[in-house]
Each structure stands twice: as structure tokens, then as C-alpha cells.
């Protein structure tokens, strides 16, 4: 409507372009998902008929993803890691939001920039730098006081820390944006009605932040779940799903069971993303 009032050839061409873009957007995902249902040993045409074997079959060579122990283990570790990352990053994101919206301290702007920086550091570098520090610390402690700290060696703990290090920037930004919208007179009103500070926080401020905290938590969970670059350097024997899938792809080549996992992840992450959007679009927003 801002280009022209009646559908001109230009507008039709524009629409065709937008349509082409969305086809481009969907094509690889559709390809990755669809071959999960092809009754063939290879994720390729021709179509051999519909099957759910790649999800539920329990015998080789068509071992379904829900019977593939290594994939299931990867899925489990992914859930554990993503759960920890989401919980931690939402907690720190919330304290950061209060710090930067309510707090008053010197160098606030510089520190705020510092909070954003992890988002523009390549994930690979976050991975190696944390690996280096953790290993150096572990080696040093082992050498000097003969203390072996297993959690400083590559493994779940380091993976969680590595992902947490940049996911927290995302959660902080989401929750800060919401807290900025908060009408401070609401807290004063609650105080005025006789509530204690703790009660105001529990009954007024946190409920107001809840949609942002949930949305930030979901995004943190998704980012953690799909993360590869940072995880690659920090992973130990407990490999999360993306690493397991990559290994499978590199060693076995593409098999339809990977399509099954892809389908599962596309649907799962799409649904979670949808929930996070719906949660944030709350009706009580003024």
C-alpha cells in the first residue's frame, strides 16, 4: 500500500520474490524432514513409500531414532545441558536486568556494552578460551597441590559454562527490555497498600517479568540445544545431540535416521519458538 494503491506488475513481481524467498527458506527443512518418512536406506529420491520405521523400528539396518541408544543418549545430554543453561542464564539475566535498569553505579554504560559483547564473539573462540582457562587451572592445581578437579576437564560442566557465557547476553537483553517497560509506580502502589519489599517483588515485579523470563528461558534452551561451535571444544564423553549427529554424519554418512532426528528437532524447536512468542504477547500489556 505504500508502493502503489492498485496491484501493479511491480507489486506482483515483488510478491513473487517474497514467495520465492519463503520457498528457499522452507526447502532444506522440508527435505531434511520429509526423508524421515521415506521407506529407503538412503535419504534420497526416488520415493519408496511412507514409513515410520526411522522413528520406531527396533532392528538394524533400519534402527529408528527412539531405539538408537547413542542418539537417545545425545538427546538426554542435550536436555540436561539446555535445562541447566536456561535456568542459569535466566537467573543471571534477571539479576542483570535489575542491575542495569534499577542500579546506579559508575561506568554503567561501559559495563552494559561489556554485557553485550559476548554476543559478538564467535562461538569457537568462546569455546577455546574457556577450554584453555579451565585446563590451565586444572593443570596448575594438579601440579601444585595435587588436586584433580575432574569438572574442569572437557565435559558437561564446561559445555554448560561455555553456552551460558553467551546465552546470558540474550536473556539479559530480553528481560531488561521488559523491566524497562515496568511502571515503577506499580511497586509504589503496592508499598502504599502495605506490602513489604519482598512481597512487592514476589507479587508484583516478578509476575510482571514472568512472560519475558519464560520467553528468555525458551530461547536459551533452544540456543543451547542447537549450539555446535562452542560445544565442540568443550565436549567430553557425554556428547549432546548435535555433536552425536555430526559424528554420525561424518562416520556413517547421511542416513534417514538423521532425517528422523531433524524432523523431531525442527518440529520441537518450532513449537517452542512459537510458545515463546505467544508468551511474550500477553494481553495485559498496557
Amino acid at each position: 500500500m505504500l508502493i502503489s494503491r492498485k496491484p501493479s506488475p511491480f507489486l506482483w513481481a515483488y510478491r513473487a520474490y517474497v514467495l520465492a524467498f519463503f520457498i528457499f527458506l522452507a526447502a532444506p527443512l522440508v527435505a531434511a524432514g520429509t526423508f524421515a518418512f521415506n521407506d529407503s536406506l538412503f535419504p534420497a529420491l526416488p520415493w519408496q513409500g511412507f514409513t515410520l520405521d526411522w522413528f520406531f523400528n527396533d532392528t538394524e539396518p533400519k534402527l529408528g531414532m527412539f531405539h538408537d541408544r547413542r542418539l537417545l543418549r545425545g538427546l538426554y545430554y542435550s536436555f540436561v545441558i539446555a535445562g541447566f543453561v536456561a535456568a542459569l542464564s535466566v537467573f543471571v539475566g534477571t539479576t542483570n536486568a535489575f542491575l542495569f535498569v534499577r542500579g546506579d553505579f559508575p561506568a554503567k554504560n561501559a559495563l552494559y556494552i561489556l554485557m553485550i559483547v559476548p554476543l559478538v564473539i564467535p562461538g569457537v573462540i568462546l569455546g577455546i578460551s574457556i577450554l584453555v582457562l579451565a585446563s590451565d587451572t586444572a593443570n596448575y592445581l594438579e601440579r601444585t597441590i595435587d588436586l584433580e578437579l575432574e569438572f574442569l576437564r572437557p565435559g558437561i560442566f564446561l559445555v554448560v559454562l561455555g553456552q551460558f557465557s553467551f546465552v546470558t547476553t540474550i536473556t539479559s537483553l530480553v528481560i531488561t527490555a521488559r523491566l524497562k517497560k515496568f511502571d515503577a509506580s506499580m511497586e509504589e502502589a503496592a508499598l502504599n497498600l502495605g506490602a513489604t519489599r519482598a512481597r512487592v517483588l514476589r507479587t508484583i515485579t516478578l509476575p510482571f517479568l514472568r512472560p519475558a523470563m519464560i520467553a528468555a528461558g525458551i530461547v536459551a534452551f533452544l540456543v543451547s540445544f542447537e549450539n555446535f561451535n562452542t560445544t565442540l571444544f568443550l565436549v567430553g564423553s557425554e556428547a549432546p545431540l548435535t555433536i552425536t549427529m555430526y559424528d554420525r554424519m561424518a562416520k556413517v554418512g547421511s542416513t534417514p535416521v538423521l532425517n528422523a532426528v531433524s524432523f523431531f528437532l525442527i518440529i520441537g524447536s518450532g513449537a517452542l519458538a512459537l510458545i515463546s512468542i505467544l508468551v511474550q504477547r500477553d494481553k495485559t500489556d498496557r
Binding site: 511502571d183 509506580s185 506499580m186 509504589e188 502502589a189 503496592a190 502504599n192 497498600l193 508484583i204 509476575p207 510482571f208 495485559t284 500489556d285 498496557r286
Partner: peptide, 12 residues
């Protein structure tokens, strides 16, 4: 007790 300028009713 106080009635605020924008009332500050609790939307939740």
C-alpha cells in the same frame, strides 16, 4: 493511601 496518576492497578 494513594491513587496514582496512572492508577497503577495491577494488570496481573
Amino acid at each position: 493511601k494513594m491513587v496514582f496518576q496512572h492508577l497503577a492497578l495491577f494488570p496481573m
